[in-house]
Amino acid sequence: QLRKGKDGSVMKIEVKGRDDAIKLAAQLGEVDLTEYGVTASIAKTMDTAAQVAVAAGLEALKNAKLVRGEYGDASSWRLPDKLQESTGVVYASSFPALDAAIGEVMRLLKTRSLSQASSAALILELRRRIQEASKDQMDAENHPIENGHSLEDEELIRSLEQCLDGDKKEAEAPFVFDRKFLFRVLVLGNAQLAQMVGARGPNTQTNAACAGTTQAIAMAYDMLCAGRAERVIVISGDNASSDTLMPWLGNGFRALGAACTGGRV
């Protein structure tokens, strides 16, 4: 990872342990678009980032009193007919569809790798290494020993056995390709919101990293000034700290020196 000094210097530092890892990251909660009257089949075509953005757009319309917005009633979230043609949508996202794409790939790899690995062989190798590393210490300190290991080590091995057994059973289930995969990896949050509310004005998506939402607002302003729309719904969504993306994007930010590794901030 990169470490930046106060004097502007930059050093490349090897990551050696937990102290160098990211310890704090806010995560999105669950979003259920069916509460807005969206069918479950449609909601499943969107990844979490898109669902959050769409929900925010619906709430914005309700707050602006442009729709009735009754939960469970999809029709109550549609714009009045006289407003539909003049309403645009701009969607900003830095990592659109990555959560869905990487999640599907990891699901496939998990079934392949775990089904080919022998959990028994892994446990046997772990026992051997622990025994070699801790034998002298156990003898010197006279710790209770079971099967050549300390009781603490044995408990750890049993926990690992249970985890591997659960993963192996999951891996043994055949991989079934998600038929909605294409919908989930397409960047359609703007189109999906427009379809739900009946917005027929200009519609687009943008990606400008951390400046994405700011750029989206600027684009909406241009649409208004050009007379292409009378109102524009600007939405934004990302899920960079999800369990799926954090190992990739979190490490990416850390490698650039753009992530804090402090445990208390």
Rank of each mutant, 00 (worst) to 15 (best):
K23M: 14
A211V: 12
V67C: 03
F183G: 07
S76C: 01
V197Y: 05
A100Y: 00
E230N: 00
G250M: 03
Q84M: 10
D139R: 11
Q51D: 04
S75L: 05
S134H: 12
S118V: 09
A50F: 01
V185R: 06
S94P: 02
A216V: 05
E161T: 05
L28P: 11
K12R: 12
A211F: 15
V54L: 12
C260N: 15
E170S: 12
G250F: 03
R68F: 13
Q116F: 11
E154R: 04
V15Y: 08
E85V: 00
S41M: 14
A191V: 13
E14D: 09
D136Q: 02
M46P: 11
V89T: 05
T34D: 11
A199P: 01
T204S: 08
H149S: 07
I233F: 02
K169A: 13
G72R: 02
W248R: 07
A56Y: 01
G201W: 02
M246N: 10
T214L: 09
I130A: 01
A208W: 15
T87K: 02
D165G: 07
V10C: 06
L58D: 05
L245I: 08
G227F: 00
I22L: 06
M219L: 14
G166A: 07
N207C: 08
V234L: 03
V90C: 03
D73N: 04
D139W: 08
A121N: 13
A140F: 07
L256C: 06
D73R: 06
S134R: 09
A133D: 04
C210R: 07
A50T: 06
P144K: 07
L114W: 14
Q1C: 13
G250Q: 02
E141F: 09
G166Y: 12
Y36H: 03
S118A: 06
E70R: 09
A226T: 06
G201D: 06
G88E: 00
D139T: 15
A229L: 00
D222M: 09
L256Q: 15
D81V: 08
L83I: 02
G189P: 02
M138Q: 06
L182E: 11
S150I: 01
F253H: 04
F181S: 07
L249M: 11
A226C: 09
A226K: 03
A40T: 10
C260K: 12
I42V: 15
K135Q: 05
D81Y: 12
L58M: 10
P202F: 01
C260Y: 15
Q162C: 08
A60Q: 14
C260R: 10
A117Q: 10
G103P: 00
M106N: 12
R158E: 09
L61C: 08
A43V: 10
V54I: 10
T45M: 11
L193P: 04
A255Q: 11
Y91S: 05
K6Q: 14
G198D: 00
D167C: 14
D153E: 07
R179Y: 06
L151K: 09
A92C: 01
F95K: 04
I235T: 06
Q195V: 14
Q51G: 15
E14M: 10
D99S: 10
A211Y: 12
G227Y: 02
T244M: 13
G250L: 04
N207I: 15
L28E: 13
L156S: 04
T48A: 11
G250R: 08
P247K: 03
D238A: 03
